[in-house]
Simulated assay, not measured.
Amino acid sequence: MVSARLALVSALSVLALVVGAAPAFAGTGQSEGAGDPSNTWSGELTAVGADDVNVAWSGTALRIADPAAVPAGQRSPIVGGMLVLAPHALKTPADRVRAITTAATTGVDVEVRGESAEGVWTEWAPAGTALPATVPTVQVRIVLTGASASLGAVVLVADTVPAASLAITAAGNTYRIFATREGLVGGTTANGHVIVSRDHFVALPSRRGLAPKGTGDYTVRVCTTTGARCEFAPVWDVGPWNTTDDYWNPSATRQSWKDLPQGRPEAQAAYQNGYNGGKDQFGRTVANPAGIDLADGVFWDGLQLTDNSWVDVTYLWTSSGVRGVVGSGPLNIRAGAGSSFASKGYAATYAQVPIECWVTGQSIAGPYGTTTRWDRVGPGQYVSHAYISGTTGGSAPAC
């Protein structure tokens, strides 16, 4: 641990130079400034736990644990690992976190997200990027890409700059996307989840919307194009085809392929229009236009699909309003406020479902009590509140 302490001292020395020099913030001409000194802390790189993926502390650095491991849905030969640090309560609310690294090789990315006072998380963004709002709590993750990637220490500094504008709508961004079935039972997803038979999660081709293991912080609503069946499912893997294609975001803030219209996956453009020479980011010929992978339970049970298909996807973290966390699932979505009504699909465990309002219906005994409350999660879609472990974003009104 002596080497780790020396690395931290070195990082703190760099921090002192940064604060003293007050260099310009790239692209704005604004001074970095010192910010609030109490909003400075060191990342606990030794705290590798069950929610982390393919990383280990070697005694001197954070490194890849298994150089042969590749996330299940990535469909590429790139080895990766991820350390998700515990949420950090700021002394003073801020909208940016900078990272000062020591003994960092190529292939090290530090990413940050912020949690509002109502418990809603922003998307992950590179450290140093302005978050879309001033937040009291932040979380940092370290992503290692490549078998030799390593990091000795990291110091984090939160401050405030004019925040970027984030497109938030009441309903959220919805696009018609081609879906494929992921399968890969027994494989490990990008967030460390081991895939089981008839599992309930999805994969998107960017880790900006990747939920930590065992959470639904980033949840999608996936529906058949007729709207007859829907599932709310957490984003637990990265893929298909690409890994830097957050196509649901505006072109100006999109990671890659900014010339494509919002809502158009790069793989779809490559397959349909020969974009990028018909290749994905790894140079492979794109064999289908998929922009989302569905785990088997979502594919077969939630949507009752029999083949790869076009679906309507809503990226719920781009929406506002009250959300309920499904504590026990997959939970039936009913056409009315009772178990005798037809099933309209499922809400997966950990999924965050939008609660538009609530009605009184059949009394249901569940893991979170006995109640007659039914939450409306969409037009003609209801779930029993007895299976909702908690809510974020305020309180829902009666319908």
Rank of each mutant, 00 (worst) to 15 (best):
G378S: 08
A86P: 03
A171F: 08
S339V: 07
W248F: 15
R176K: 11
T102K: 07
T101K: 10
A290H: 07
W300L: 15
A68V: 07
S251D: 12
P330L: 08
A61S: 13
Q362R: 05
S150H: 12
E123A: 12
V235T: 06
T101C: 09
Q255M: 13
V55T: 04
P265I: 03
E231T: 15
W358L: 03
V298Y: 01
I177P: 01
P330Y: 07
V353G: 03
G338C: 05
G277E: 08
N276I: 02
D259E: 14
V79E: 00
A26N: 11
G114R: 00
A99T: 00
I292C: 03
P205H: 01
L210V: 02
P289L: 01
F25S: 12
S384A: 05
L45A: 05
F299S: 08
A50I: 07
I177F: 06
P126R: 01
Y175C: 04
T314Q: 06
S343F: 01
V298K: 00
T174D: 09
S150K: 10
A147E: 10
G183S: 11
E356I: 12
A65K: 14
S319G: 12
N54M: 09
G263A: 06
A179I: 00
M1T: 15
L90R: 05
T226G: 13
S328M: 06
K344A: 08
G338V: 05
L90A: 10
V220N: 01
T392P: 03
G146D: 08
T40V: 15
A158N: 06
L144H: 02
P289S: 06
D280Y: 00
A86W: 01
S343W: 01
S38W: 10
T224L: 09
G187N: 10
C230M: 06
M82T: 13
A190E: 02
I364T: 14
G29C: 11
A365R: 12
W374I: 05
H88D: 03
W310D: 13
P261K: 04
A179H: 00
L85W: 02
A269F: 01
S10Q: 12
T219K: 02
G366R: 02
A365T: 15
A22D: 15
G107M: 02
T106Q: 11
G366L: 04
T370P: 00
N276D: 05
G209C: 11
A269P: 03
G183K: 08
A34V: 06
R264T: 14
G29F: 12
Y346W: 10
G394R: 04
Q272W: 06
G216I: 00
A24F: 09
C357N: 14
R98Q: 08
K279S: 05
T180D: 08
T244Q: 12
V194S: 09
V185S: 14
L166D: 09
A365G: 13
A56V: 15
A386G: 00
K258T: 14
A21K: 10
V70R: 13
D217S: 13
A50D: 14
E231P: 01
R141E: 01
Y346S: 07
D296A: 15
R198H: 13
Y350E: 04
S197L: 14
S116L: 08
